[in-house]
């Protein structure tokens, strides 16, 4: 009878974390940040059909990087949870915090209990009535949650982009400024050489504070091109 090698729990967790991190680092980046009218999501994503950014509920949006099938199943689960809650109680009872918690629990369970962790990172953003009430939750592959202020960058070049945002982001950016900042940082850090990203390579959506009820809106290529042209 063969005796399996002993591997310490620390080693297992470290291996899983390394595996997940590598998977995430292979993908393009996503930036989520506050602007003067709400929250904007910017992703480098040439596909018109396979979204990285999506609506969860009236004032709550979702952005993800990593493996598409994995974050897509989480996105669908989030929409189902939000709609179930909103239908069972009231629309105002669906909160970003409860969705972020549900994702954290799920990712945590998957990370510890299955052999292969999810290679995803997620942002759940909720736009409040005032900018002070905005919430940005960043969820890691192991279920850890961070409550971020102002902006979040995730994906392959998250670190240099975050450093750029620390410098360039401030409260009260207009939509054009916010998108411009995100796009220039993503272009600078996404590849070995700096690139000029155009509207067709981007997926951009906003949670527009001033809209009634459903605040989530995708920006069309035309509108995006106008914004980038400044």
């Amino acid at each position: 009878m063969s005796v399996p090698f002993y591997v310490s729990p620390e080693q297992i967790m470290r291996d899983k974390a390394d595996f997940a991190r590598k998977g995430i680092a292979r993908g393009r980046s996503v930036v989520v940040m506050q602007y003067d009218g709400g929250i904007v999501f910017v992703a480098e994503n040439p596909s018109r059909a396979l979204h990285k950014i999506s609506e969860l509920y009236d004032r709550i949006g979702f952005a993800a990087v990593g493996k598409y099938n994995e974050f897509e199943s989480l996105r669908v689960a989030g929409v189902r949870l939000a709609d179930m809650r909103g239908y069972s109680y009231d629309r105002s009872d669906v909160t970003g915090r409860s969705l972020a918690n549900a994702y954290a629990q799920t990712l945590g369970t998957i990370f510890t209990e299955t052999a292969k962790p999810f290679e995803v990172e997620i942002v759940v953003a909720e736009v409040g009535m005032q900018a002070d009430d905005d919430q940005l939750y960043r969820l890691m592959f192991d279920g850890s949650v961070a409550d971020e202020r102002g902006y979040v960058a995730m994906g392959g070049s998250a670190e240099p982009i975050s450093a750029g945002l620390l410098e360039g982001w401030h409260e009260g950016l207009t939509l054009a400024e916010a998108v411009g900042l995100a796009v220039s940082l993503m272009g600078r850090h996404g590849d070995e050489k700096a690139r000029e990203l155009t509207a067709t390579q981007l997926e951009v959506a906003v949670l527009d504070r001033s809209r009634p009820r459903r605040t989530f809106q995708r920006l069309s290529n035309g509108r995006l091109a106008d914004l980038l042209a400044g």
């Binding site: 199943s73 689960a77 189902r80 949870l81 709609d83 179930m84 239908y87 069972s88 549900a102 799920t106």
Partner: peptide, 28 residues
């Protein structure tokens, strides 16, 4: 209150909320 996202929420299925509700909480 649900903690996390139980199996049915993550299962592949239809895009119908009515079907989902009927399967999970028909009393609602």
């Amino acid at each position: 209150p649900t903690h996390g996202l139980p199996g049915p929420y993550r299962a592949t299925g239809s895009a119908s909320f009515v079907d989902f509700l009927a399967a999970l909480h028909p009393e609602r």
